[in-house]
Design a binder for these strands. Sequence first.
DNA 1: GTATCATATGCTAAAACTTGCATATGGGGG
DNA 2: CCCCCATATGCAAGTTTTAGCATATGATAC
Lengths: 127, 127
Amino acid sequence: MDNWAEAFQALGNRERLRLFFLLVQRPDGCCVCELVEALELPQYQVSKHLRALRRAGLIKSVRMGRWAYYTVADSRVGREMAAFTIRVIPDSALTDAVFRLRAAVARREDGRCVVQARRPGDNNARN
Amino acid sequence: MDNWAEAFQALGNRERLRLFFLLVQRPDGCCVCELVEALELPQYQVSKHLRALRRAGLIKSVRMGRWAYYTVADSRVGREMAAFTIRVIPDSALTDAVFRLRAAVARREDGRCVVQARRPGDNNARN
DNA sequence: GTATCATATGCTAAAACTTGCATATGGGGG
DNA sequence: CCCCCATATGCAAGTTTTAGCATATGATAC
């Protein structure tokens, strides 16, 4: 019961819900910089929101070199919430973010993220 | 999207989740005093949490004489969340509350709530 | 080693939420 | 009308969340 309340609470935030939704659409996971690009949020915010989602048991992360890949957790809470958000949230609500994420992922080389190259002036996330 | 974030946030609280769960189990609705008895919370808390759930579009209320009957809202958000909580939260998590609620409802006369008679000393909710 | 990129985290101020108590409102009944 | 019951709400204090900025950590490349 309390696990579920925590999960609800974690998703009870616009940005975190978007974040989770993106991860749901990408079962093999993506790294923080790709999410930063997709959501157009400062990197520190993405990191913190990811941590909140992880604490709620919704997602997990794996380090690959300097990158951290996040995926929906293979837990009850993760699976059920993923299914629910897919069922309930229309893709149209995130077309732009999904598009940008796809673009970022498409730019990978040898399956490794090469987003980088955000020039100075962006909202943190670089420099 | 934002509607869903709000709904998640509303359910992201232990007491509100219990509250909603009870209402889901009782499609014809129940009144505040019955919920107070079931959850063993002060009346003002139940009222406030109900308001939060209503603002999120999850439940609705109808005045019947001096009683207010709450039910799961017949909205997308209400229906989907009801189905989800039923699916995901084990009855065993709320056996006691459900039991007390059933007892309170069983005490109705002519379908009207007659819980009353909480004597002084209880946590608000009377007096 | 140093430099650099990707990510995480500590700190702070502002905002939102929770809780408790008191009290208000709305509706009956005598 | 006055009193009582059921419910709602205003306010204050304490707690948690959030957002932003700076900076730390981890890891690779040179």
